[in-house]
Design a protein around this nucleic acid. Structure first.
Lengths: 254, 254
DNA sequence: CGCATTTTGATCAGTAACGAAAATTTACCC
DNA sequence: GGGTAAATTTTCGTTACTGATCAAAATGCG
């Protein structure tokens, strides 16, 4: 194989794994001039291997995006802020459960500032994100992987979780009812969440304020079972009473 | 919510799902001038929501690159070819174990042409890839997630796997010794692999030819326990005798 | 309604990226 | 080792993108 073929193959790989590469960064990487890279990516773009743009090249998206991916970027800013706040309340060396939900995945990212944590999760993405961290011990709960959101659910999952007792449970939710009931859509997920809560010393609920008042079918529990609520802004006066009665600490991101 | 917030949120979604968007295409999409889009994406880039490039914006890769990812693109071409070959030998509706290894992840990709499969894996990436498929039932084995390669290992994993009996085991390997011994580095991983093999009706070994002769410490088993070997090219005359005696079918990608 | 603020559009000089072509180096084959 | 083709670098005029600035339009608020 010639040097040129090898380089083009590697360009393809770099573009594929970084989703976008500038001409200059590629030129640096291979110690060649930008013009050489330009010739490479122009020809590869003709073959349809990559997408050419002014200043660089991007991968041609082979996998169509899932509904989940679309949802994930929804409200990303607030989710990140909530996640940062939660991470600040988790002490070094703690053990945690983290369950399903896009906000929880942002929490996993935000926790990467920590040095040492023990994390048990039924969320494939959380496991991936945390496993990349050097000092973390990550345990994934076994069971059926749900296509919708890469959550692991089922009886085996519950049994698995019941083996552990941790300091904190990080919980997401689909909706909070007017009376403070925590609601979700899938009863199998709810059963896992209940196992998580009952095996944690403290429970943190992480959800953006838009979930307050949103309806869902299955009752997971009640605000009074939660120790702290992390959200982007206070849910509003309608909820002040319920929150006070439930004795929940509220932390807002602004 | 203002018009601006809505637009920026949609920009984020567009950039995330297309991995790269030009200024002009965004300007067209929202029927505003490029200058407006420029302002949007510059501010979003400051917040770290997207990556700004000359002529457009790309999504920020949320997971930082690991040594594993770098290894993954190594020899990608051969791995893909091997994977394609394996996928052709898996019938519709079959049940499979898939274990750790980058080649196995390519197999997971290649299987996406199938309509209906039941897949049990101790590889986080394989679970993700397969779970994206509509007709697949994916089960992840629980246990400790190894940082190196996102494999799940440990006693709990073995127990979990022993619950199942499947049609095919798709196995990767670190090295094959001169006498046909299958070798690996981590004995915990080997124990999981052994559990997988003993609970499958047929075992397929997927590995590129470079692994033949490569040394590793822990003995996983022997070629004679394998039903078929899938590789990119024949390992060479040194191995012809061992392979014949072990009664292994060899499928090469070229 | 009218004022203040925010958001958007238009202009323009400066800069970064572009392709074409010539010069140079490298690789290859006999 | 010399000749030839391929690959790469150099150079340069052209095109495309950029940020700054200011005016216009839309929006929010009392």
């Amino acid at each position: 194989m010639g040097k040129l073929d090898r380089r083009r193959r590697e360009i393809l790989e770099l573009v594929a794994s970084n989703s976008f590469m500038t001409i200059d960064s590629l030129a640096d990487h291979f110690s060649v001039t930008p013009q050489t890279i330009r010739r490479d990516i122009n020809e590869m773009a003709e073959e349809g291997l990559i997408a050419r743009y002014h200043g660089g090249a991007a991968s041609v998206s082979t996998t169509e995006n899932t509904a989940y991916q679309d949802r994930q970027v929804l409200n990303l800013g607030s989710k990140r802020e909530i996640a940062k706040l939660v991470a600040e309340h988790i002490p070094e060396g703690a053990s945690l459960f983290i369950n399903i939900g896009t906000t929880n995945e942002e929490v996993a990212h935000a926790l990467s500032g920590h040095k040492s944590l023990k994390i048990i999760t039924n969320n494939l993405h959380v496991a991936e994100i945390c496993a990349a961290n050097q000092g973390f011990e990550v345990i994934i709960a076994g069971g059926v992987v749900r296509q919708r959101d890469f959550g692991v659910i089922g009886e085996a999952t519950i049994d698995f979780i019941n083996q552990f007792k941790v300091d904190y449970a990080i919980i997401g939710i689909s909706g909070v009812d007017e009376d403070g009931s925590l609601m979700d859509f899938d009863y199998r997920e709810v059963r896992v969440a209940r196992a998580i809560i009952s095996n944690a010393r403290q429970t943190f609920l992480c959800t953006d304020a838009s979930k307050f008042g949103r309806r869902a079918m299955v009752r997971l529990g009640h605000l009074s079972e939660i120790d702290a609520l992390f959200t982007d802004r206070h849910p509003g006066p309608n909820w002040a009473d319920v929150i006070r009665e439930a004795d929940v600490s509220v932390y807002t991101a602004n």
